[in-house]
Design a protein around this nucleic acid. Structure first.
Lengths: 205, 205
DNA sequence: TTTAATTTTTTTGTATACAAATTTAATTAA
DNA sequence: TTAATTAAATTTGTATACAAAAAAATTAAA
């Protein structure tokens, strides 16, 4: 019965635009105008403007247009992700709690048996648990900001069923389980590099 | 005839607030109100509001208040900086141009002989050249966003004359000069770690 | 035809108004 | 006194209006 109505118009606008970009309804390169979106949402331009600014900061909108990342952009974004998540994986090997470890394992099980939508979620959660374990809100925030763009790639990886995706997750899990930080970092970096290579292959649509 | 508005009001507002925070005129913890700043600047609330949002994204303002970072915040921010600049240093050892290398050396010379203000600049430039060499706009952007906060610390390091600051720069320079990526990364990480330790010591104001 | 200059339309940036929410101050009850 | 309530004030979020700037369409000149 409780409908999750965002309290503020600018949050509503933000989520509306973001979701339209992420699910492809607003194709890359589309020019956004405050007026039109405001009309669609039945709000004024003021909150829409704020939402667009936020999306610009997140890199999903560039000069009023939906981003259209080049291969080089993808490589650059992943380079950062590899550094940060690699560190988080190493850190996790020492500091991850029992509960998180169990959660991590559940992600692997779900990803093996679930629907595409469940795999998407499990995949996201797997990485999230590790990132959260870094216990560095500043780092978490940076990765959060990348999340929207990362989502665009995760979709590719899951939808086109990249081979060994879950096997790699399992290997990472084991390294963390055995408190082997070096190995966890190495495997995570390798894993993300493969994601990147796979995406680059499929990204010339 | 051109108007007396060379810039946009929201840019003017952004720079005004940022500078006031960075030079200490707005002490940490100060609550900012859109109205007052708008009045001070002789503009309306609309552009001020936009500026504050941007500063919030950059981490200089948190919940309408000037940030007041804790020790733990400093550690977290530096952890990210160490990762990214460490990578950039390693990369620089292979890819830095002759011109940049010369510029880098100039920074060291200036820092040895210059005024405090010149040392500040040379210090900033030294790190900037290395970051730019990473040739990753995405990474550069993240470090840029941290720049305002980093500035707060750089001031501490230079003002209180942290020992061996420039010697460490010289060591890093040499490692890059000799294309020793491993060493460049190691030294850069060590260098930033010392900056952090020093700041933590002086930061109980 | 293309190119340049012009007008028209759209879109943005800013100011302003006002209600809702929040904070602060004042008042009352314990 | 302190705690709880209420009233006043400040501050925020949003809508709206309008001028400046940018983009698109039109016309004139090559």
């Amino acid at each position: 019965m409780t409908k999750k109505t965002p309290k503020h118009a600018y949050i509503k606008s933000y989520e509306y635009i973001r979701d339209k970009i992420l699910n492809g309804e607003l194709p890359r390169g589309t020019k956004l105008t405050e007026e039109r979106i405001a009309e669609e949402l039945g709000v004024s331009r003021t909150p829409v403007r704020e939402a667009i600014r936020k999306l610009e900061q997140e890199g999903l909108i560039l000069q009023k247009k939906v981003v259209n990342p080049t291969d080089s952009d993808l490589r650059n974004i992943f380079q950062v992700r590899i550094l940060l998540e690699g560190y988080a994986a190493r850190y996790s090997a020492t500091y991850m709690s029992e509960e998180s470890l169990e959660e991590l394992w559940k992600c692997i099980v779900t990803a093996r048996t679930g629907t595409t939508e469940e795999i998407m979620e499990a995949n996201e959660k797997f990485h999230n648990i590790i990132v959260q374990t870094s216990n560095n809100p500043f780092m978490i925030d940076i990765i959060d900001r990348m999340q929207s763009i990362i989502y665009l790639f995760r979709k590719t990886v899951v939808y086109y069923k990249r081979p060994f995706l879950i096997d790699e997750h399992e290997q990472i899990y084991k390294a963390i389980y055995h408190h082997d930080g070096d190995e966890a970092e190495r495997l995570m970096k390798e894993h993300l590099q493969k994601d990147l290579d796979f995406c680059l292959h499929y990204f010339q649509q």
